[in-house]
Design a binder for these strands. Structure first.
Length: 758
RNA sequence: UGGGGUAUCGCCAAGCGGUAAGGCACUAGUUUUUGGUACUGGUAUUCGGGGGUUCGAAUCCCUCUACCCCAUCCA
């Protein structure tokens, strides 16, 4: 499926692959879990592609689940829109559509279980007080007095909540976690709230509803989901996700949550709120307005599902917040349609041309597809002395790189004859109303013997047979790259042309619903407003237009962008405490450490203790500088993740490791390898070196032949190096090291390679 | 008492100590009865900044900076 030529995988697929390989899960199960409270947009499409795509790639399956835990915002019409979107994109969900509301009984039972474990309580403080007690990001919160309620009381209250004995907001069920947690989400999060509201599916069966954080993980678990993929803003929620499952003792195979960056596209908005604003405010015609980034909008505009899929495939998946250029989307649809749709001729802004020397009429046979599109099909093109061409395709005083019709320049009528200008006719205001021209009979398309060279072939329609059509030209909805709201709307995002002229075959033969109007762009017969009497076409996307681009560039040539470099400001460093300063001084003066290493060590008590022990207990004692480097780099890394007593190696072993490097028994590269082994097993470095035979090779006579071999295998790079590409030195050293399993002394290799390549 | 993320070309994005992938955009040329397509080239001495470790750093360590997310009884 994934046709991307590189073997690089996104980070999610990497995780899935590892989990499958380690048999963490027998099968990958994902889910697409929207809340049915709005129309899906292209951001959802990305999520759909990820969840269904991963399931497909690894022979698993993907569920569609409506996360319907909030009865006041959700509706079944959104459920239908969501289902439509997925089907349109060509994916199939496993089994029936799932609903979180189907799991309400189970989720309720889990809540009761938590209460029985003393891990949840009914809180009766009002909203305002609760907010106050929660604290702020910089201050710890305090627990409500109701947290002291007995299990029995909680059980009783919770049941009464369920039975509808309380009003909205009177009580909530909360998890008992930690009101002082640095992660705000963990300060006794709400599990259930009372809501006497009609649920679009569950009806009035419930008056308490579980919160997202409680319902989501459990629903995933109930469905046997393995990888719960969501967007970045839920990173903080991952702790609760895990807390719920862990606390309830729900073990593997249980789902784990992974987050990716949501999609942003420039010149549009993606948030439900802003989209709703546009629809409600009448800025657009509805959820399916072709200018909207909704799936319904793209569908109405004429985008193909394939193009959306290839777009999603092209943008990749990562964790960096990003804003994709619309040009990327436009490329996807052009690229898709180019090989698919028939080319026809349509004139948007007609200018009459009368061909003085042509009499009668004829029918030309014209292929729908250019030579480079391997498709068959043609239509009849009527021709006579009266035709229309695009107003843009004639210029009285053209710039010198203008290729179209001018008083001095002939032009070909696509699929027909070459014409030459005779006369221009203007009205009282000086506006051109007609061109008089002559044609060259021997220049007929395909049978041209005229020998006339023209620079371009333009589209045209025959006056009597052309059909009048409405064409809707869409441009970006916003004029700002990162629009805030309605104030940034592009006033010219929709241009309606009522009287465009199109060749008759398009209307009578209907060879397709999507067309390329030659030299203009891709268009789509509007699925709703189109009738045979009044055909309507939507512009999907324009063709790339290097002429137009050139003109525009000329127009704003002096718009010089001041490419200012970002100036980095160095912030203030926290000053050292007295003890740290003393340590620092000792390190730099007595032991001769450089300031950076001394700084790292002095500021970290655990690290400096480790260093101290290693320096004093190791026998024979290693060079303090080398040891400090080892500790402040390698050991520091391990200590970032683990606590001191979780480390498998001890200071004395590190001393021994350093000593080996000092004595040149092993290279520093090998030392890293040995260190890694020590991290895993806690074995002595000398033992590891002995077991694996890692003693370094420094004998030039042993290394030289390997270098020769490498040079022989890479003649290109040898040449490049000799031509001055000195950074290839690293390449050669790397290759030699690889050949020796890393054992060659890199210093020796370096000098040898340098000599040989000179 | 703050915490969690992120930073590689104009825009996406690979890369996980040994030659800075790829796509879009841009650009030059070839082909062309679409100023389209296709094809061939050109586009990062450098990876947010500064230090350090190393023979060798986008990758390891320290530090600074910028941006995003979190204090809904929303999801």
């Amino acid at each position: 499926m994934s046709k991307s030529s590189s073997d690089s995988k996104d980070f999610l697929r990497t995780i899935v692959e590892q989990d499958l390989k380690s048999s963490k899960y027998a099968e990958v199960v994902t889910r697409f879990p929207p809340e049915p409270n709005g129309f899906p947009h292209i951001g959802h499409a990305k999520s759909i592609c990820i969840n269904f795509g991963i399931a497909d790639d690894y022979a698993g399956h993907c569920n569609l689940r409506m996360d319907d835990t909030n009865p006041t915002t959700e509706d079944t019409k959104y459920v239908e829109a969501l289902k439509d979107a997925i089907e349109w994109l060509g994916f199939e969900w496993e089994g029936n559509v799932r609903f979180t509301s189907d799991y309400f009984p189970k989720i309720y039972d889990y809540a009761v279980e938590l209460i029985k474990m003393g891990k949840a309580y009914v809180d009766s403080t009002d909203e305002e007080e609760m907010r106050e007690l929660r604290g702020t990001v910089k201050e710890a919160g305090r627990r409500s007095k109701y947290a002291e309620r007995s299990i029995e009381e909680n059980l009783d209250l919770f049941e009464k909540m369920k039975n509808g004995e309380f009003k909205d907001g009177e009580h909530v069920l909360r998890a008992k976690i930690d009101m002082t947690a640095a992660n705000m989400k963990m300060r006794d999060p709400l599990l259930y709230r009372i809501r006497h509201a009609h649920h679009f599916r569950a009806g009035d069966a419930w008056c308490i509803y579980p919160m997202y954080d409680f319902a989501h993980g459990l629903s995933d678990y109930i469905e046997g989901v393995s990888h719960s993929i969501c967007t970045l803003e839920f990173e903080n929620n991952r702790d609760i996700y895990n807390w719920v499952l862990d606390t309830l003792g729900l073990t593997l195979p249980r789902p784990y949550q992974h987050e990716f960056a949501r999609l942003g596209i420039n010149y549009t908005v993606m948030s439900k709120r802003k989209l709703l604003e546009l629809v409600d405010g009448g800025q657009v015609s509805g959820w399916d307005d072709p200018r909207l980034p909704t799936i319904a909008g793209y569908k109405r505009r004429g985008y193909t599902p394939e193009s959306i899929l290839s777009f999603c495939d092209g943008i990749g998946i990562a964790k960096a917040n990003s804003m994709v250029d619309v040009a990327q989307l436009e490329f996807s649809i052009r690229d898709d349609l180019n090989t698919k749709v028939p080319r026809v001729m349509c004139v948007l802004d007609p200018l009459k041309v009368t061909i003085g020397n042509y009499e009668g009429s004829e029918e030309l046979d014209a292929s729908y597809y250019p030579d480079d599109v391997p498709k068959e099909g043609s239509r009849i093109l009527p021709f006579s002395k009266e035709i229309y061409i695009e107003r843009d395709d004639f210029m009285e005083n053209p710039p010198k790189d203008y290729f179209r019709l001018t008083p001095k320049q002939a032009v070909r009528l696509k699929h027909a004859y070459i014409i030459t200008f005779k006369e221009v006719i203007k009205d009282a205001d000086g506006k051109i109303v007609e061109i008089k021209a002559v044609y060259h009979p021997e220049s007929k398309s395909g049978l041209d013997t005229s020998g006339i060279k023209v620079k371009s072939a333009i589209q045209w329609v025959e006056a009597k047979t052309a059909k009048r059509v409405e064409v809707r030209l869409y441009d970006r909805l916003f004029k700002e790259e990162a629009p805030e709201g309605v104030e940034d709307i592009n006033p010219d995002s929709l241009k309606v042309i009522k009287n465009a002229l199109i060749e008759p075959a398009v209307i009578t033969d209907k060879p397709d619903v999507r067309f390329q109007f030659e030299r203009q762009g891709y268009f789509y017969a509007d699925p709703i407003d189109y009738t045979d009497e009044k055909p309507v076409f939507n512009k999907i996307v324009g063709l790339k237009d290097s002429w137009n681009k050139k003109e525009k560039k000329k127009a704003k040539e002096s718009t010089s962008k001041s490419q200012e470099k970002k100036v980095q400001i160095d912030g203030e460093v926290v000053p050292m405490s007295e003890v740290q300063q003393k340590l620092y001084d000792k390190y730099t003066t007595e032991l001769g450490l450089n300031s950076e290493v001394a700084n790292t060590l002095a500021r970290d008590e655990t690290l400096s203790n480790f260093y101290y022990e290693s320096l004093n207990l190791s026998e024979p004692s290693p060079n303090p500088v080398g040891l400090a480097n080892m500790v402040s780099n390698e050991v520091a890394r391990e200590l970032k993740e683990k606590s001191l007593d979780a480390l498998k190696f001890n200071p004395i072993q590190i001393g021994a490791l350093t000593k080996m490097v000092e004595n040149e028994i092993i290279s520093s590269k090998i030392a890293k390898q040995v260190f890694e082994e020590m991290v895993k097993t806690g074995e002595n470095p000398t033992q590891i070196v002995e077991d694996k035979g890692l003693v370094q090779i420094s004998d030039p006579s042993k290394i030289a032949p390997i270098i020769d071999e490498v040079m022989e295998k890479n003649p290109d790079n040898v040449a490049k190096f000799r031509a001055g590409n000195t950074k290839l030195l690293g390449f050669f050293v790397g290759q030699v090291l690889k050949a020796t399993g890393g054992k060659a002394n890199p210093k020796v290799v370096n000098t040898l390679v340098n000599e040989k390549l000179k």
